[in-house]
Amino acid sequence: MNLIFAGIFLLSFSLMAIRDIMLQHHRSSKMRVVIYLLYIATLCLFVAAFYQVDIFKPFQNTISAFESRVKAWMMSLY
């Protein structure tokens, strides 16, 4: 991952997270849960992407296999 990107992203991300924590009493409890879940998921994905852990590989392999199957089926039609 590009380090300049990582720096800009972490700075903006943390500033926005601080703002949302400060304003949390303006949101309903359900919205607060959604917002925090989004932040946590983003942070986990960022760490995985930064250390080049390919967490989506099995999913991507499944999609690729599916694509190949559809392609083969389409080509077999004519």
Binding site: M1, F9, S12, F13, M16, A17, R19, D20, M31, V34, I35, L38, Y39, A41, T42, L45, F46, A48, A49, I55, F56
Partner: peptide, 15 residues
């Protein structure tokens, strides 16, 4: 949820 969702989409699109 515009802010956190935007960051989530960004990192998801990278991966």
């Amino acid at each position: 949820c515009n802010g956190p969702f935007g960051w989530f989409v960004l990192i998801l699109s990278i991966t």
